[in-house]
């Protein structure tokens, strides 16, 4: 029997990855999370994070237990994943201006320091990183990827969940997944 693949929700921070995690979990894919990072004003429905993903380069032992589950990872950590597993990546896309504005707000609220460059430069840097990432992932035999636009997910969640369900091989309860998207919570949210 073929080993189950690992579903990964990825993207830039503040691109809707937590929203997608919530949808996929509701749609029947168990989420690998530790609930260490609690819900707050920035993510009222929780972060759906799993601390060990940050140490994947040094200790990828958690990956085996992620088969058949969904885990959230920022795009830059995907380079560290071991090659012996199959990964299906649900990659969130959101306008970079919105992403950076939202990141800025989050950094301000938490009192943390981010990059010491202007918004324009940061936009350029993220663009360059995503080009590099897309080039890399296109050449990985054990990765497949679907892009989901943040705005589309809010406006037409059922349609997006149908696309994701096809990508994941029909394992998703699309009605339950799409029902988690609360337009009032996400629309125009930074």
């Amino acid at each position: 029997m073929k080993e189950p693949f690992i579903t990964i929700v990825s993207g830039l921070p503040r691109s809707g990855t937590s929203m997608m995690m919530q949808a996929l979990e509701a749609g029947g894919i168990p989420a690998l999370t530790d609930n260490i990072r609690k819900q707050d004003e920035d993510n009222p429905k929780g972060y759906y994070e799993f601390e060990p993903v940050k140490k994947t380069k040094d200790d990828p032992s958690w990956v085996s237990a992620a088969r058949g589950k969904v885990v959230k990872m920022v795009y830059s950590l995907l380079y560290d994943l071991p090659s012996e597993y199959e990964y299906r990546i649900v990659f969130m896309q959101r306008a970079l201006e919105e992403v950076i504005a939202s990141q800025k707000k989050m950094l301000q609220r938490t009192g943390k320091q981010g990059a010491q460059v202007g918004d324009e430069k940061l936009t350029e840097l993220f663009k360059a990183q995503l080009i590099k990432f897309n080039h890399w992932i296109a050449n990985q035999k054990n990765f497949s990827i679907i892009s989901v636009n943040y705005t589309d997910m809010i406006a037409l969640p059922q349609l997006q969940c149908d696309r994701i369900n096809t990508f994941l091989g029909g394992i998703l309860d699309t009605e339950a997944a799409s029902a988690t998207v609360d337009p009032a919570l996400y629309r125009n949210r930074l």
Partner: peptide
């Protein structure tokens, strides 16, 4: 490019997504 990588890493670290 190296400075850019550092800046992005600072941003991701500040947001709590990497260590």
């Amino acid at each position: 490019s190296s400075e850019g990588e550092d800046a992005v890493a600072d941003q991701l670290r500040g947001l709590g997504y990497i260590e």
